[in-house]
Every structure is written in C-alpha cells, then in structure tokens.
Computed example of a mutant assay.
Amino acid sequence: MTPPDAPSNRWSDLDRPPLNTTALRRGLLRPGALWTSLDVVEETGSTNTDLAARAASANPPAEGAVLVAEVQNAGRGRLDRVWTAPPRSGLFLSVHLTPTDVPVEHWGWLPLLTGVAAATGLARAAGVDMALKWPNDLLVTVDGVERKAGGILAERAGDGVVVGLGINVSLRADELPAPTAGSLALAEAVSLDRETLLRAVLRSLEQWYGEWRAAGGDAARSGLQAAYAAGCATLDRTVRAELPGGRSVVGQAVAIDGDGRLVLSTGDGLQQPVSAGDIVHLRGAAGGLV
C-alpha cells in the first residue's frame, strides 16, 4: 500500500489540491459557448503535443477542446525551451481553436490575444498586475523586479491552432526553474485557487477570441492591438532582438503593428518590424534585464 505522504499521491500536498473536473465542466461548458470539452489528466509530457496530435488526427476534436494537466514532464516553450514545475503548482493547459472564417494571415495574433486574455483574467481573479513581454510571456513584479510567470506557445495543427499556456501559480522561491522566473504567489496574489484562475482565463479568452473573430481577425477593429500595446512591458524600452539565423538588432521598441510585429527604432533612424525572435529587455521601466 502506498504511504499517504508518497510524492505520487494526489493529496500529498494539501496546499495544492487537485482540480475538480466536474466543477470546471459545469462552469465552462454550456450551449453556445466556445468551450466544448474539458479534460484534466494527472500527468503528461506536453498538453500541446497531445492536443495537437488529436487535432491533426482523422477524428479531430471540435473547436473549443481544452486539455489541462496537473503536471507536465516535457512541457515546451518557444525555441523548444523546457517548462518545468512541481505537480499542481500552476496551470498547464492547451486549447484547440479553428478560426476558419478569419484570414490565415491574421492567425499570428492568436498568441498575443491569448496573452491579453490571460493577463486580463488573472488580474481580475488573482488581484495581481500582469504585464506582457512580446511576443508570448506573462510578467509579474516580485520585490520591484519583473519576473516571468507564464508563457504561451501556439502551433498549427490540422485545420486550426493549438495554443498552450503555462502559468506559475503557487511556486515558492526555491522551486523556481530560473532566477528570472516568478509566480503569482511571489507577486502576492489575493487568490491562488487554480479553479478560479482557470475559469477566469478561459472566460477571458472566450471573450477576446469572439471579439477578434467577429472583426474578421482585424486586431485594430476588435480592440486587440490597442489592448496588447497598453499592457506590453516591452514598448518604450531599449531591447535586443535575437533573430533567427544568429543575427541580433538593438533598438527602442516603439509599436506593435497591425500584423502583431514588434517595431524597433534603431540607431540609424530606421524602423524595423520584428516578426519572430527572442527579446531581451536591456533597460527602461523597472526590471533591468529580462
């Protein structure tokens, strides 16, 4: 018989109770809603990998499928970075979206849209000021310093997109995966209840996705472009963009354009849009290097 305090016991950490799948379904799955199914698994490698495989299969799930894991042992971020966290210490989920009525050239807004939705939902439910680091990080402030508390990964799958979201909720300082990481707990959130936070994020995502889709994917007309710019900690700062192919560009981040690209004003007076790359905040609003 497994001892009650064994690490594999789902009740071994009473400060981190398991998610209640029945309650989550009752609160999120309703006629006419975006969310059509919600599954919680005890452990998996990556919710994005799992849901993307289902989406690309001969029998894909309906739009609005949600897959949540209590722990991921092979979670992925951008550039194949590993995302690790103790069991039940965060929110690790992926959603399946098929905006087939939106021109494909606008689909690049989906990770930015998810960032706005997550930041909005978490700010309301957790009482923590969230900021966005272009293109896909969620930041909190811990002891006056910006820290990464979440990340987003969007991947094409079948006829749609699978968007993954990882958020550090209750991680303590000695559990952080990197010195630049943070969590809602360390940012003194008023609530660390994962079910409350998950519902808030998914409801916010449903709202923003619906408005963006109703505008035909037009980020300006839906208000998404302005909302992202308003919450983006990257703007008005000097940054280094580490681009594919080993190149890098240093400049001031001055705008998010209509395609979701970060526009840099470089030393030669030119403005250069960046569509992909790793961004390092060099100086500016409190936070130093991020």
Results as ranks from 00 to 15, higher is better:
residue 66 V to I: 15
residue 93 L to G: 00
residue 102 V to W: 02
residue 85 A to H: 05
residue 99 P to T: 08
residue 76 R to E: 01
residue 92 F to S: 00
residue 112 L to P: 01
residue 113 L to R: 08
residue 70 E to L: 06
residue 130 M to T: 12
residue 78 R to Y: 08
residue 101 D to S: 14
residue 125 A to P: 05
residue 131 A to D: 14
residue 86 P to K: 03
residue 115 G to W: 02
residue 79 L to W: 14
residue 128 V to W: 03
residue 142 V to E: 14
residue 66 V to L: 13
residue 86 P to D: 08
residue 107 W to Q: 07
residue 74 A to N: 14
residue 106 H to E: 12
residue 102 V to P: 03
residue 103 P to S: 11
residue 108 G to P: 05
residue 91 L to N: 02
residue 97 L to W: 13
residue 100 T to C: 07
residue 107 W to K: 08
residue 79 L to C: 00
residue 72 Q to G: 06
residue 85 A to I: 09
residue 111 P to I: 08
residue 91 L to K: 01
residue 65 A to S: 14
residue 129 D to G: 09
residue 133 K to Q: 13
residue 79 L to Y: 15
residue 66 V to P: 02
residue 64 G to H: 04
residue 112 L to C: 01
residue 140 V to A: 08
residue 63 E to C: 06
residue 84 T to I: 09
residue 123 A to I: 00
residue 95 V to P: 03
residue 111 P to M: 10
residue 115 G to L: 02
residue 88 R to H: 14
residue 85 A to L: 11
residue 132 L to Q: 09
residue 68 V to G: 02
residue 78 R to A: 06
residue 90 G to E: 11
residue 90 G to Q: 10
residue 128 V to Y: 05
residue 141 T to N: 05
residue 91 L to H: 04
residue 129 D to A: 14
residue 126 A to I: 06
residue 143 D to F: 00
residue 144 G to N: 09
residue 102 V to E: 04
residue 74 A to V: 13
residue 130 M to F: 14
residue 104 V to S: 13
residue 132 L to G: 07
residue 141 T to L: 00
residue 73 N to Q: 08
residue 135 P to D: 11
residue 96 H to A: 13
residue 117 A to Y: 09
residue 141 T to Y: 03
residue 100 T to S: 13
residue 115 G to D: 05
residue 129 D to H: 11
residue 121 G to Q: 04
residue 108 G to D: 06
residue 119 A to M: 08
residue 100 T to A: 14
residue 74 A to K: 13
residue 102 V to K: 02
residue 118 A to Y: 08
residue 64 G to E: 03
residue 138 L to K: 02
residue 64 G to R: 04
residue 87 P to I: 11
residue 118 A to N: 06
residue 73 N to V: 15
residue 134 W to L: 01
residue 77 G to D: 09
residue 75 G to V: 12
residue 103 P to N: 10
residue 138 L to G: 04
residue 87 P to F: 09
residue 67 L to Y: 13
residue 127 G to E: 06
residue 132 L to H: 10
residue 124 R to E: 14
residue 75 G to H: 10
residue 65 A to N: 10
residue 114 T to W: 10
residue 72 Q to W: 07
residue 114 T to L: 10
residue 105 E to R: 15
residue 68 V to E: 02
residue 103 P to T: 12
residue 119 A to P: 12
residue 126 A to E: 02
residue 96 H to E: 00
residue 124 R to T: 10
residue 70 E to V: 06
residue 123 A to K: 01
residue 73 N to T: 15
residue 71 V to P: 00
residue 142 V to Y: 09
residue 73 N to H: 15
residue 114 T to E: 09
residue 106 H to M: 11
residue 136 N to S: 12
residue 76 R to F: 03
residue 68 V to N: 03
residue 117 A to W: 08
residue 98 T to R: 15
residue 91 L to D: 02
residue 106 H to W: 12
residue 116 V to Q: 03
residue 140 V to W: 00
residue 89 S to F: 07
residue 79 L to K: 02
residue 101 D to G: 11
